[in-house]
Amino acid sequence: MVSKATRWVLLGVGAAAATGVGRTVARRRRRHQPERQDGWYVVRRGVTVDRPRDAVIGFWTDRERLDRALAEWATLERIDGDRWRCEGVAPDGGAGWRAEITVEGPGVLRWRVTEGAVPQEGRLELTDAPQGRGTELRAELRYRSGPVRRVFGLTAGDEPDLALRDALRRVKSLIECGQVIETRHDPSARSPRQERATDKIRDKLTTGGRA
């Protein structure tokens, strides 16, 4: 039989522990939240491409190579001099999103998503990496979302920050080795049902990460 005093002590210790854990989790979550400015989330991501700046710019201006590289991911259409329309392909093959890209100068461009689930815009700047390590692609993304929507987006893998990190890694890979490698169709002894489950895990292991 537990005495009343013992029960109160246990309750107190439990409450203190729960408060401590809760505060630690909240602090950790705050540390991992992107910056907020005027209702927009602002994230900055970067990737280093092992090619000189001219070669990186050259990749984007070589239309044939670009179309080949983007084939299954997006289409690009020139609107006028410095403006382009980019249309993302959804996994089912339909239109996923539309964005307008404006080249602002050598090595600087902006984009704005004109049709998509989340309002977003961003800026990409190319700078020389130190020690002849190629070119740094530094992106700043601003998107409107709320904390709950962001958590759902992260869980579902369709959050703009994840997409930006994917895009940067994809661009790096396309420029450095001409392809974005995947193992989705490699042989296995899995049943179709097991393969679908494995593909979901592949998606989780492919989406986001550092960039």
Binding site: D50, K172, E176, C177, I181, T183, R202, L205, G209, R210
Partner: peptide, 13 residues
């Protein structure tokens, strides 16, 4: 190699 692991998130974490 930077580009040969198509599923880098696990090892990055």
């Amino acid at each position: 190699c930077d580009n040969s692991n198509p599923q880098p998130v696990f090892t990055e974490k």
